[in-house]
Design a protein around this nucleic acid. Structure first.
Length: 274
DNA sequence: CAGATGCCCTGGGCGC
DNA sequence: TGCGCCCAGGGCATCT
């Protein structure tokens, strides 16, 4: 579901499309989507009339700057959230599960659609939210290998822990571990220097390539970009959701196990314990 | 500190 | 055709 590459794809298009636009009206019908606010009405009045500035991202959070204000509009898509930019005069009817609509000064609508309602949209201090997160996984200064060596927890858990490094979820943690040839249950502290380096490089390469391919849309996945289009990164997956298929490196069948309540895919041969 | 489990929630797929 | 069941997983709370 939306992880760093998907959120970054949306961020880039959102920044190009909505920076400088005024939010002339807001419709918030999904109470749960704006649950950080006292009420949908309070959310609407906190946002209406503001001009959107730059769109930034940290981990899986989108941060839309608001002109002349310390607070930002923050969006987290969680499992099934989508941000869709829709034009038309009038715009076509909103689909089911549309919880928040921002009406822009050029007549377009920015819609937050989220069937499972885990996602959220709120106006608040980005510092307060982002200070709880580790460094962004795609920040050039982030050395993921060094970060995980500081803990004895398992690699997969560390990669998915947003307080350690922000932006990696279940799909890309499997892909990163496959590329780094590391097993999911290795303790972070057990990595030697060359293994840590492989992990750092794999994080950057896997995520950058997925961004270039505009994110992963799996068959049973909700992810769509700002224009409702699918991403092409799923075809580049080497391990995730490829159980029983031959490992592209060594032809051993990819295995699927349950780990911490999630499906995890790995090659039992070339991601072996040392 | 490390790890496991359950919860929030809907849609899709499957077996019967 | 339809029903019940399981699965998908991001983040958080709670337990051992």
């Amino acid at each position: 579901m939306p992880e760093l590459p998907e959120v970054e794809t949306i961020r880039r298009d959102l920044d190009a499309e909505v920076a400088g636009r005024r939010v002339v009206d807001v419709v918030a019908t999904g109470e749960r989507s704006v649950r950080r606010h006292r009420s949908p009405g309070e959310f609407v009045s906190s946002l209406r009339g503001n001009v959107v500035e730059r769109v930034r991202r940290h981990g899986k959070y989108l941060v839309l700057g608001l002109a002349g204000r310390d607070e930002s509009l923050l969006v987290h898509l969680r499992m099934s959230g989508q941000l869709l930019l829709v034009a038309g005069d009038p715009p076509p009817p909103a689909p089911r599960h549309t919880h928040v609509v921002l009406i822009l000064d050029d007549g377009r609508e920015l819609r937050f659609v989220d069937p499972r309602t885990f996602g959220e949209v709120f106006v608040g201090s980005s510092d307060a939210v982002l200070s709880a997160l580790g460094p962004d996984a795609l920040d050039p200064g982030t050395d993921t290998g060094a970060l995980v060596r500081a803990s004895r927890r398992r690699l997969k858990d560390l990669l998915m822990d947003q307080r350690v490094v922000a932006g990696i979820g279940n799909i890309y943690s499997d892909e990163i571990l496959w590329h780094a040839r590391l097993r999911y249950d290795r303790p972070g502290s057990s990595l030697d220097g060359s293994e840590a380096r492989r992990l750092t490089v794999a994080v950057r390469q896997v995520l950058a390539r997925a961004v270039a391919l505009r994110g992963s849309s799996l068959a049973d996945e909700q992810y769509r970009d700002l224009y409702g289009r699918r991403g092409d990164a799923a075809a580049a997956h080497r391990a995730f959701a490829r159980a029983t298929e031959p490992c592209p490196r060594c032809a051993t069948p990819i295995e699927r196990i349950r780990h911490a309540g999630r499906s995890h895919f790995f090659c039992p041969r070339c991601q072996a314990l040392p």
